Simulated scan of single mutants.
Amino acid sequence: MQSADKVGDYVTRLRMLTSKMKRNGETIDDVSLMEKLLRSMSKKFRNVVVAIEESKDLT
């Protein structure tokens, strides 16, 4: 994620990529997708990531 990206735009781009991967036979579960999203967030959103991880509510 680039620092100028909006979270919504980034999530949309990530969903499009995972859809393409699934069409090509890749199996991606929601937990893996969420982990990728949280790991790749820019430092600007670090406090949001920590709050989500600490709550352990990844839904």
Rank of each mutant, 00 (worst) to 15 (best):
M1Y: 13
M1G: 14
M1P: 12
M1E: 14
M1I: 14
Q2H: 12
Q2S: 13
S3T: 13
S3E: 13
A4L: 08
D5F: 11
D5K: 09
D5A: 12
D5H: 09
K6Q: 06
K6T: 07
K6Y: 05
K6G: 02
V7G: 01
V7F: 05
V7K: 02
V7L: 12
G8C: 02
D9T: 03
D9S: 04
D9V: 01
Y10Q: 08
V11C: 09
V11R: 05
V11T: 06
V11D: 04
V11G: 06
V11M: 09
R13V: 06
L14V: 10
R15H: 13
R15G: 11
M16I: 12
L17F: 03
T18S: 11
S19E: 15
K20T: 11
M21V: 01
M21A: 08
M21W: 00
K22I: 11
K22F: 08
K22D: 10
K22S: 12
K22E: 15
R23A: 13
N24P: 00
N24T: 00
N24Q: 00
N24G: 00
N24L: 00
N24F: 00
E26A: 01
T27W: 03
I28P: 01
I28D: 05
D29W: 04
D30M: 03
D30V: 03
D30K: 03
V31M: 15
V31W: 15
S32N: 11
L33A: 12
L33T: 08
L33F: 12
M34Y: 09
M34D: 08
E35A: 15
K36A: 04
K36L: 09
L37A: 14
L37Y: 14
L38Q: 04
L38P: 08
L38D: 07
L38K: 05
R39Y: 04
S40M: 04
S40L: 03
S40Y: 07
M41S: 07
M41L: 14
M41K: 06
M41E: 10
M41V: 11
S42D: 14
K43C: 09
K43V: 12
K43L: 11
K43D: 14
K44E: 07
K44F: 02
R46F: 11
R46T: 11
R46E: 15
N47K: 07
V48D: 13
V49P: 01
V50R: 02
A51N: 01
I52V: 10
I52C: 04
E53W: 02
E53F: 01
E54L: 01
E54D: 05
S55H: 03
S55V: 03
K56A: 07
D57W: 05
D57S: 09
D57C: 08
L58Y: 11
T59S: 10
